[in-house]
Amino acid sequence: MARTRKSTRRAVGVAADLMLAPAVIGMRMPLLAAEAQSGNGTLGVETMRAVTEKAAAMADGVFAAQVSMVSAAMMFWPELLSGRTPSLLSGAAVEKAMHEALRPARRTVKANYRRLRAK
C-alpha cells in the first residue's frame, strides 16, 4: 500500500510538471514569431534554445533510463537470492526507468516556465 501511494505521488508530480508545457509553448510563441519576422536569415537565440534543449533533454532521458535498467539488471540476482521479487520481473524497474527518463524533461519545462514568466 505504501508503494502505491509513493508511486501515485510520483506520477502526480510528473503530470503537474509536464502540465506546464502548454504554458511554456504559449509564452514562447511570441518570441519565436518576433525572431522569424526579424528577417536576418539566421536562427534567433530563442529558436536555437527551443531546439537544442529538447534534444539535450531527450538524450539525457534516454541515458538515465538506460542506466536505471542496467542497475536493475545488475540487482537481479542479489534480489532473487535474498528472497525478493526482482524489480525487472515486478515492473518496478520499468516504472523507475520511466520516471528517470522524464526527469530531464520535467526540469527543462520548469526552468523554461520560470525563465519565460519573468520576461
Rank of each mutant, 00 (worst) to 15 (best):
A2E: 14
A2W: 11
T4R: 13
R5V: 09
R5T: 09
K6A: 13
S7R: 15
S7F: 06
S7Q: 14
T8W: 14
R9T: 05
R9L: 14
R9S: 08
R10V: 09
R10S: 14
A11D: 14
A11T: 05
V12I: 15
V12Q: 13
V12K: 10
V12H: 12
G13H: 11
A16Y: 02
L18T: 09
L20M: 10
L20C: 03
L20Q: 12
P22N: 03
A23G: 03
A23K: 07
A23F: 15
A23W: 11
V24C: 14
I25A: 15
G26E: 09
G26N: 10
M27L: 15
M29Q: 12
M29F: 10
P30A: 04
P30V: 07
P30R: 10
L31T: 01
L32A: 09
A33C: 04
A34P: 01
A36F: 10
A36Q: 11
Q37D: 08
G39W: 08
N40R: 13
G41P: 13
T42L: 10
T42S: 10
T42A: 12
T42I: 08
T42C: 00
G44A: 11
G44C: 09
G44E: 08
V45F: 13
E46I: 07
M48H: 03
R49E: 07
A50K: 02
V51S: 03
T52L: 15
T52Y: 04
E53G: 02
K54E: 02
A55D: 00
A55I: 10
A55F: 12
A55G: 09
A56Y: 04
A56K: 11
A57C: 03
A57R: 05
A59E: 02
D60H: 03
D60F: 01
G61K: 00
V62K: 01
V62F: 10
F63T: 07
A64R: 06
A64N: 06
A64C: 06
A65Q: 04
A65E: 08
Q66R: 08
Q66K: 06
M69W: 01
S71F: 00
S71D: 12
S71V: 01
A72F: 07
A73C: 12
M74F: 05
M75C: 04
F76W: 08
L81Q: 07
L81V: 03
L81R: 11
L81C: 02
R84V: 00
R84T: 05
R84I: 00
R84F: 04
T85E: 14
T85R: 10
P86S: 07
P86V: 04
G91N: 08
A92K: 08
A92C: 00
V94I: 13
V94T: 14
K96Y: 00
A97N: 02
H99V: 03
H99R: 13
H99Y: 11
A101L: 09
A101D: 00
A101I: 03
A101P: 03
L102T: 03
R103M: 12
R103A: 15
R103H: 07
R103I: 00
P104F: 07
P104T: 05
P104G: 08
R107N: 11
T108H: 04
V109R: 01
V109M: 01
K110V: 06
K110D: 03
A111K: 09
R114E: 13
R114V: 08
L116F: 12
L116N: 03
A118H: 10
A118E: 15
